[in-house]
């Protein structure tokens, strides 16, 4: 859910930048540490960023007739963790604003917060919890990505409702009423979209596990024993 350029009025777009920038800086710090330990990770991060961009520019087969794109950050969060996903998400969002006019420069802070920070964190937490509970790997990926998308969409509705509360003055009741409206209208596209993206991510991991599972084992996304179980080969 990209918020368009110029959509957020004065105090809000600055506020969302103020919230997002420390997280991005923390992400850069984490990334620098990782790169200094393992130098071969930087090119991998670069291709992962390009992968997210290309993924987000693919059209999903749509259910309701609106054109919809996957966000791709859920997959990044599962592989690299939320801190680095925030950095990758920021760069991808910047390119989307400049190449495709999705989102904008003044709304970049708000968009980074919803798509680059909250979405990946939710996806990552669900992924970790699910793996700990020893659920099926693909089901966990599906849930993590879908809920990550939904979190993004709820945050976007919150951002819009804070900027445009019902009754013009920001009160709790006005915020809630406006939030309800934005959330209901966007739900039409976002609820099926998140399910689609969850299914797509699960399929992605299924093919990767079948063809080249050593990538995932190497990145500590999944353990070797779990891969063998998924592929149906005994240890």
């Amino acid at each position: 859910m990209h918020i368009m350029e110029g959509f957020l009025p004065a105090p809000w777009w600055q506020a969302w930048f103020a919230v997002s920038i420390p997280v991005i800086l923390y992400g850069i710090y984490k990334m620098n540490k990782l790169v200094s330990e393992k130098r071969e990770i930087l090119p991998l991060l670069a291709v992962a960023g390009a992968f997210i961009f290309v993924l987000s520019s693919l059209k999903l087969p749509s259910v309701v007739g609106s054109c919809s794109h996957p966000t791709g950050t859920g997959v990044a969060a599962i592989i690299f963790g939320p801190a680095i996903s925030a950095v990758l998400g920021t760069i991808v969002l910047l390119y989307q604003a400049l190449f495709l006019a999705h989102g904008g420069i003044t709304t970049l802070g708000a968009n980074v917060f919803s798509m680059g920070i909250v979405g990946p964190i939710v996806a990552y937490l669900i992924y970790k919890a699910g793996m700990k509970a020893k659920l099926n790997f693909y089901a966990v990926v599906f849930l993590a990505t879908a809920f990550g998308d939904w979190a993004t969409y709820v945050v976007t509705s919150v951002q819009l409702a804070l900027a445009f509360p019902a009754g013009d003055v920001l009160t709790f009741a006005g915020f809630m009423s406006s939030f309800g409206k934005f959330a209901t209208v966007f739900a039409v596209t976002q609820v099926p979209l998140a399910i689609m993206e969850g299914a797509l991510s699960a399929l992605l991991f299924k093919y990767v596990v079948n063809v080249k599972s050593d990538i995932l084992v190497e990145m500590k996304v999944i353990e070797d024993a779990a891969v063998k179980k998924l592929r149906g080969t005994s240890v």
Binding site: E40, P43, L44, L55, L58, V75, L200, L203, L204, K212
Partner: peptide, 17 residues
């Protein structure tokens, strides 16, 4: 689309190496 993205993922990984 699932096949496309996974192939893209694996190829991009190899490209990274």
């Amino acid at each position: 689309l699932g096949m496309l993205t996974s192939t893209l993922f694996i190829r991009s990984w190899e490209q990274g190496d």
